[in-house]
Amino acid sequence: MRVVILGGGYSGLICALRLARRTRGQVAVTLVSASPWFVDRIRLHERAAGSEPVKRELAEMVAGTGITLKIGRVTRIEPRGEIILGDERLPFEQLVVALGSQVDVNAVPGVREHAFTLEAASAGALAERLPAIAARNGRLVVIGGGLTGIEGASELAEAHPGLQVTLLSSGDLGGDLSETGRAHLRRGLGRLGVTLEQAQVQRLQAGSVELGDRSLSFDACVWAGGFVVPEIVRQSGLPVNARGQVLVDPYLRALGHENIHVVGDAAFVVEPPSLIPMGCKTAVPMGTYVGESLAQLSRGQGSEPFDYLNLGFCLSLGRRDGIIQFYGKDGSPLRWVFSGRLGAWIKEAVCRGVVGTLAAERLGLCISAWRKTGRKLSPEVAQQRRLAA
């Protein structure tokens, strides 16, 4: 069986490693990545603050596993069984789309031209500019009240005390946190000197954010206002939603395409109540699940639907503060949180654990695990969904 996996991020890499390990050469596994380097995305706000990232080559991370690594940018996905990679055509019997997401720089006019993002290249460019801006007490505006914007604003404010940092959000900040978590969030941002603003951004100009009835000047701007899936996925003809995420069934197969699995940020499970948030915490379980499912398929075995229980999330507020927010089984935030230095320590342990999980998988150790809801599909319903897909 020939399996092609598109994307060398968290989900694509763990999927390739698990599949190769479970099949031991009985399946031809090809991993395709646009870059030869593994990007640890959950640390890109640290990169923007000036820290030097640990460089990891994908070739080293898959060495000795039997995985064929191809570096290049996919120009077309042919769902009927072929990938176009430059001048090369890669046939497949099973395809895994793990292309992740990217910052939506087209959401508001002027973002592409006048804002940095917390993507790898842009974060590096921002890191070079900020020291000079901070030295003259310049203003940095971070737009986006989600986890990316909060972590970015706090990290940059802590790394550059002379910087005037404003965090601009269109809605209530920390909406996914409990009251205890929101209170700590505001205290933490206040301690770092981050000014909070709530307004709807109309457009970005050179040096200013237009807010309808007023404008906000800046020396640098970071856009963290949402994510979309790479356009190549939408162009493939697979069924997608407004963000470009592929609509998948409970087995993470693209609707209407049983030989195409989609994992990580590029996937949207259409069956309620299986709302799976974007992020590393879901990318690794999804990639692990599909790697295991394809290994079972190669042996003529079936698999259970993907099952994931969202237990909460962790949020850094610089290097010495953080929030660990827990969720109940109904998806609502619990009142109590871990915060302060303990929260920062747990957050750091989680970040290290992600890379550690990938390294362990390569060595034959299965430490990727997640909580499940325990819901089961009856054989009749499972068969109906397979036929519908």
Rank of each mutant, 00 (worst) to 15 (best):
V3L: 05
L6H: 00
I14T: 13
A16C: 02
Q26C: 00
A28E: 15
A28M: 05
T30H: 03
A34H: 00
W37K: 05
F38E: 00
R43A: 11
R47M: 11
G50R: 11
V54I: 11
K55V: 14
R56D: 08
R56L: 15
E57M: 10
E57Q: 15
L58S: 01
E60S: 14
E60G: 15
E60Q: 13
A63P: 02
T68V: 11
I71F: 05
P79A: 10
I83S: 03
G86E: 05
R89E: 13
L95Y: 02
A98M: 01
S101R: 06
V105A: 10
N106Q: 15
A107Q: 12
E113I: 00
F116D: 00
T117A: 12
L118A: 05
E119C: 00
L126F: 05
E128A: 15
R129E: 13
R129Q: 14
L130K: 04
N137Y: 08
V142M: 04
G144W: 04
G152S: 11
L156D: 05
L156R: 09
A159C: 08
P161V: 10
G162A: 08
L167H: 03
S169K: 00
G171Y: 05
D176V: 08
G181Y: 04
G181I: 09
G181R: 04
R186S: 09
V209M: 10
G212Q: 06
D213Y: 01
R214V: 08
R214M: 06
S217E: 14
W223E: 02
P230K: 11
E231D: 14
I232N: 03
V233S: 07
R234E: 09
P239S: 06
G244R: 01
Q245E: 13
L247F: 07
H261L: 00
H261F: 12
V263M: 07
P272N: 07
P272T: 10
G279E: 09
T288G: 05
G291D: 02
E292H: 13
Q296T: 00
S298I: 10
R299V: 06
G300C: 09
F306P: 04
Y308V: 01
N310S: 09
L317Y: 04
G318N: 05
G318D: 06
R319Y: 07
R320K: 13
Q325A: 10
S332K: 15
L334I: 06
L334K: 14
V337G: 04
F338M: 13
G343C: 04
A344R: 04
V350Q: 07
R352C: 03
T357W: 01
T357Y: 03
A359Y: 12
R362S: 02
G364R: 07
I367N: 14
W370K: 12
W370E: 12
W370S: 15
R375K: 12
L377T: 02
A382Q: 09
R385D: 02
